[in-house]
Amino acid sequence: MALFQSNNPVLKQSIFDKVAHTEGETMTIRGTVNKMSFLLVMLMAAAVFSYGEFLRGSSNVMPLVIGGAIGGFVLALVIIFKKEWSPYLAPAYAIAQGLFLGAISAMFNGQYQGIVLQAVGLTFGTFIAMLVLYRTGVIRATERFKSIIITATMGIGIFYLIAIVLRLFHVDIPFIHSSGTFGIIFSLVVVSIAALNLILDFDMIEQGAAQGAPKYFEWYGSFGLLVTLVWLYLEILRLLSKLNRR
């Protein structure tokens, strides 16, 4: 069971340790891929809707941003603690995140034309590249690799949390948003860590299928992978905006 480790907070070894294997249908890679595809379609449909609302100048834009962000966060917490509900809540999470991402993307694209298409292309390009590197064994999810990525991800999370708290007191950490050299380097590091999360998540899904995790873990694994992709997209969008400001 040591293989069931991931720096993604929704795909932890302890989650699998607590789940008894079932004698019925079990998790498969193909099933997970199908469900991931469905969640992506739901997310993109919701994103297109909120993107259009922004372009029309609708007063619903900010409610979509705030509601999507808060709703997605709440749904994610519920799914993490009630993973057996993931077949029902994962699609709702995808819709909530789509509403949030669509409006945010429209705001960025309003400042820098074409940035959204670039971010989407780079996100899916990175996803495919990481999948190829994983499947060919160029990058392996060894225990040392996992520990490094886990530590780095936790560090980024704590750093962002500190930045949010400081911002409440009108104090900004410059290079988080800066388009200077340190700001660019910071974003490149975060994008790299987010991309490497995908390697660990691919490994978790593969091992879950190999060891007979319950069928609903296809939804749970897809949800966890979607969390990583959303993070990766947002960080790439932030990086591109910095480059456009230079």
Results as ranks from 00 to 15, higher is better:
residue 17 D to I: 04
residue 22 T to V: 07
residue 72 G to Y: 08
residue 135 R to C: 00
residue 96 A to I: 06
residue 179 S to H: 14
residue 103 A to V: 05
residue 149 I to Y: 06
residue 138 V to T: 15
residue 71 G to P: 09
residue 95 I to S: 00
residue 125 G to E: 08
residue 100 F to G: 05
residue 44 M to D: 01
residue 18 K to M: 13
residue 174 P to V: 10
residue 65 V to Y: 05
residue 37 S to P: 01
residue 165 V to M: 12
residue 175 F to G: 10
residue 213 A to D: 11
residue 105 S to D: 04
residue 191 V to N: 05
residue 232 L to S: 11
residue 128 I to M: 00
residue 177 H to S: 13
residue 154 M to T: 12
residue 96 A to Y: 10
residue 166 L to R: 07
residue 240 L to A: 08
residue 22 T to Y: 06
residue 37 S to Q: 10
residue 126 T to S: 15
residue 213 A to Q: 12
residue 44 M to Q: 06
residue 1 M to C: 05
residue 116 V to L: 11
residue 209 A to Y: 12
residue 43 L to C: 02
residue 110 G to M: 08
residue 88 Y to I: 12
residue 9 P to I: 00
residue 65 V to P: 04
residue 173 I to D: 01
residue 192 S to P: 03
residue 180 G to N: 15
residue 24 G to F: 01
residue 145 F to N: 09
residue 234 L to Y: 00
residue 40 L to Y: 05
residue 89 L to S: 09
residue 58 S to I: 00
residue 215 K to V: 06
residue 120 V to F: 15
residue 55 L to R: 14
residue 220 Y to S: 04
residue 89 L to V: 12
residue 214 P to R: 03
residue 73 F to K: 00
residue 6 S to Q: 07
residue 146 K to M: 08
residue 39 L to V: 03
residue 184 I to D: 09
residue 102 G to V: 04
residue 114 G to A: 02
residue 113 Q to I: 09
residue 117 L to W: 15
residue 168 L to I: 12
residue 1 M to D: 05
residue 225 L to T: 01
residue 30 R to G: 09
residue 184 I to S: 06
residue 15 I to V: 13
residue 228 T to D: 15
residue 99 L to E: 04
residue 240 L to R: 02
residue 127 F to C: 02
residue 117 L to H: 06
residue 62 M to T: 07
residue 222 S to V: 03
residue 35 K to R: 15
residue 16 F to Y: 10
residue 164 I to Q: 14
residue 65 V to K: 07
residue 159 F to M: 14
residue 63 P to S: 10
residue 242 K to R: 06
residue 162 I to E: 02
residue 19 V to R: 15
residue 112 Y to R: 02
residue 194 A to P: 04
residue 236 I to T: 03
residue 157 G to L: 11
residue 98 G to K: 03
residue 197 N to R: 08
residue 114 G to H: 04
residue 236 I to K: 07
residue 200 L to D: 06
residue 64 L to N: 02
residue 77 L to E: 15
residue 190 V to L: 05
residue 7 N to M: 13
residue 70 I to R: 10
residue 94 A to K: 01
residue 14 S to N: 05
residue 181 T to C: 04
residue 80 I to P: 00
residue 181 T to M: 13
residue 158 I to A: 15
residue 34 N to K: 11
residue 183 G to I: 07
residue 159 F to R: 06
residue 19 V to T: 15
residue 121 G to F: 06
residue 224 G to C: 01
residue 111 Q to E: 13
residue 169 F to S: 11
residue 237 L to D: 07
residue 3 L to A: 10
residue 152 A to P: 03
residue 221 G to S: 12
residue 132 V to E: 00
residue 91 P to I: 01
residue 161 L to Y: 09
